[in-house]
Amino acid sequence: MAVNRDSNGYTFAFAITLVVVVGAILASIAMWTKPYKNANDEVKKKMDILKALLPSEEANDISRKNAAEEFVKYVNMEDAVVLDMNGNVLEGEDAFSIDIKKQYRDKKLKAEEKKYPLFVATNKEGKKSYVIPVVGTGLWGPIWGNICLAEDMKTIQGATFDHKTETPGLGAEIKQAFFIKGWIGEEVSDENGFKKFEVVKDNSGALPSKIDGITGGTITSKGVEEMANRCLEIYVSYFNNLKK
């Protein structure tokens, strides 16, 4: 080979060419795929809200293909509200576009600046239900989900939990139906206000709102507990105002 591959000049030239080529390929692919990815994310968000909202038989029929059209059937975006940390309504906000995951991760954002969206849905019988997006921390990374309250604004009617990095077979089980089943029917408030949840092993624990945890997934279960308690409390004060 004519070129000396160990010379400084060649090394630099190679490095620069490589950086430029790789950078250009990556940047163009990122730009090209971005609209598709945003569309996918939006559909996914609608899917998750619907899954928390609908009874499990119907929720299983929701797929990426029909999520958008089903979403309009149930959820009226005119009714959706955005709350601040004290449960007061913020005017002029678009509930759907708020990225609570990003907001949660952003440690520089002050608590007062955080926004809490609430989706209101009406089913075929005309009954209202309320979908609350939640976000928290599991063992390895973020966890998130939606909790759906029934018309009385306190009974949990459905829920979804999701994650990206929890241990398969342990913490990752928060996605599964048996874990979510434990939440359904629990009440988030009584005459004294907000009721804390507790995710426990067997029937231990002192609080009345107990949910069966996951063996070996204790830290993730506790993360779900913290997430539900922190997020739901904000909405309960809003619901109390609404009831008055």
């Binding site: 390929i25 692919i29 795929t33 598709y36 990815k37 996918n40 559909v43």
Partner: peptide
């Protein structure tokens, strides 16, 4: 690259 393509077309 594979990850980005999958995220866009096979979510």
């Amino acid at each position: 690259i594979v990850d980005q393509l999958l995220a866009a077309f096979m979510p």
